[in-house]
Design a protein around this nucleic acid. Structure first.
Lengths: 205, 205
DNA sequence: TTACAAACCAAGCGCTTGCTTGGTATTGTC
DNA sequence: GACAATACCAAGCAAGCGCTTGGTTTGTAA
């Protein structure tokens, strides 16, 4: 299962919009705008212009502006949960599984889905409370993947800290890369992954 | 130099507003509102109401709404730079200096200045570009403190990763605590500091 | 060709926003 | 007690916002 086939499978199940379709294109542009300007500063006119339609026409596809934000977040989580699951499954040892997770999350944050991931981190408060509840449930599945792997490492005696705390620290550390990491800065994602592993004192893979 | 005397000294030098004064109170309330609702969602009417005046009266103290955001950020950085400097100076060994920095930053993020620190992290994009440049300069001083300490640890052979990358990872990890850490959750800030140190494999202090 | 729904446009409504204005209390100073 | 500076209020303006409306085009299938 490579990344493309995972995406296609999700599209087929209607869990993620086809990036080539009208809805998918809008969500992609919306993610870009939301990341660059913030949700509040992005107007429905901006969103409409980005896909070449009138602002009013947006409301044919989405009932409210917030529904667009929610869709961006929901689809991003769905895609990334699937990608993470695949990354874990592909790795064999516990340490490799962690490394695979770190690498995959860095990829999510700084690669194709980067805009949407940044939105997930920084535009959380712009979601209505009920949407937050829904998105949070999806996120729990995603988080459990991490916690399971970290727990095994703890039992192996490789990790000294609490898995729960470690995961939250890693969430922050990895999310934050979106604010400073640039692929063309002489540091590849593999390098970055290695740095994180080194920082945790787990270099001896 | 305890925290209170540091604050008083900054107030005396007019680098930070007196928390008891009109301006200081407004900035404190603004930080709270900006954190809770976001800068864009907070109206000048909200800000005025929080200190019991009319919205128009705000513009007697600040020329624009954005100037309020900028002031919150600038004063927070000034205060925290001084606090960090004191924390480093008070510690003796290299490891203790790092631990002191971590502890101090956790305190900043989750203690008294927590609202303002959260604003600094999450409302960055709402600053005008020229304000960003100014705030960034202040931040560099602050960051240099960290880099110096991390570099010594690297030379000691205790830290395997690049100080620059480590600092950025720590920035993310520590900032992120604002989204999940609650002092009443059975985990003290000392515990949390210990967890971070443990996560970095530096437990043997 | 006809029928019908999905996709879209042009216009604008009602409301909220940041900020301005002209004037009135309050405070500090000699 | 005079006088200015400071702090504030009450009212509202211009612009921009999310979203609605009524009508037109486009795509699809019999």
């Amino acid at each position: 299962m490579n990344q493309d086939s995972i995406l296609r499978s999700l599209v087929a199940d209607n869990l993620v919009s086809d990036p080539a379709g009208a809805r998918g294109r809008l969500l992609h542009e919306a993610a870009k705008l939301f990341r660059d300007k913030g949700y509040e500063r992005t107007t429905v006119r901006d969103l409409a212009a980005a896909v070449g339609i009138q602002s009013g026409s947006l409301f044919h596809h989405f009932r409210t502006k917030e529904e667009i934000l929610k869709a961006v977040m929901v689809e991003t989580i769905r895609l990334n949960t699937a990608l993470m699951q695949a990354a874990v499954d592909a790795a064999s040892t516990h340490r490799e599984k962690l490394q695979a997770l770190i690498r995959a999350e860095l990829e999510s944050i700084n690669g194709q889905t980067g805009e949407a991931m940044a939105v997930l981190v920084f535009e959380w408060r712009s979601l209505s409370e009920e949407s937050q509840v829904y998105v949070l449930e999806l996120r729990d599945i995603y988080e459990q993947l991490w916690l399971d792997v970290l727990e095994t490492l703890r039992q192996d005696g490789v990790l000294a800290a609490d898995p729960f705390v470690v995961r939250r620290m890693l969430t922050g550390a990895l999310s934050w890369t979106v604010t400073w990491y640039r692929p063309d800065g002489g540091l590849t994602l593999d390098d970055l992954t290695a740095q994180v592993v080194a920082m945790m004192g787990l270099t001896s893979l």
